[in-house]
Amino acid sequence: MHVPDGFFNAVTSVSAGVVAAAGVAVCLRGARRELDDRTAPMAGLVAAFIFAVQMLNFPVAAGTSGHLMGGALAAILVGPYTGVLCMAVVLLVQSVFFADGGLTALGVNITIMGLVGVLVGWAVFRLVAGLARGKGGVTLAAFLSALISVPASAMVFTLLFSIGGTAPIEVSAVAAAMGGVHLLIGIGEGVITALTVGAVLAVRPDLVYGARGLAKPLVLRGAEGTTTVGAPEPAPVRGAGRPFLLGGIGVTLVLAGLVSFFASSSPDGLESVAESKGFLDRATDHVFSGWALADYGEVGGIPVGVAGIVGVGLVLLVAGGVAYAARSRDRIKV
């Protein structure tokens, strides 16, 4: 799903770059707080791990194979901040050192696969792991979070496509195709993520960031028999939930802002929406009009609303998930 140059128009690419930069900046601070001077080596090694795992092909259905995207896996194993950093660095390295994914599309790629993949994965994981406790709960949560994060990334891709995609395809068709294919991939991703998390949990449960509440209580053997004390709080991270929540909301708001901004200014996305709704029958001469960024400055009315509402709705959904996840996490701590 590495988007190349030219797939999105320049304005969308640059705006996604701004979103990606903001998200990565938040995560740099967050990771620093959690790992302090271990951040660079730990995140670097985990990024190398993600890079390697993305090359593990696994059979999906008869004859086809898929590979991990790894966003949810990274979030569960090392936490959302470090997870985003690792994904961003993997994408950066793939783009600059291996020409995989366009340089101008780097922002889009980091936004879709890094920010959305990790954040949605983490939000779903916290949600489910908060409801279903224990190792089984963690495994189930891992499966669902990967299962959902992949099509969620695909949906944000579709959203961006409707805003600034350069191909004249009906948005609903893109949504259906991307959603369908990635739901299938998501199943594979979910299975392998859950099993991978389970495998780590079986050997080194302390390394699974998402399962830090699972440590067994300590047993004290004294003269009055055995007593148990609470498990030592694993590396207490003061107020980590709040900045993450704020960061999540911030990203979401920026996304929302972008959606409305582009809904009223972008040519191609509107055109697709308009065409799909049958508004624009006069639609073919535009192909030959000059400036790719400037044609169709205005199409008034309903399509703007449609794109806006769809976008804001999706964004609110993500925000709600993030908020709930942060809340349930605080509750677990108490």
Binding site: A31, T39, A43, L45, A47, V89
Partner: peptide, 9 residues
């Protein structure tokens, strides 16, 4: 920090 992470990777 990002450069260092990429370097280690």
């Amino acid at each position: 920090l990002l450069v260092q992470i990429a370097m280690f990777m």
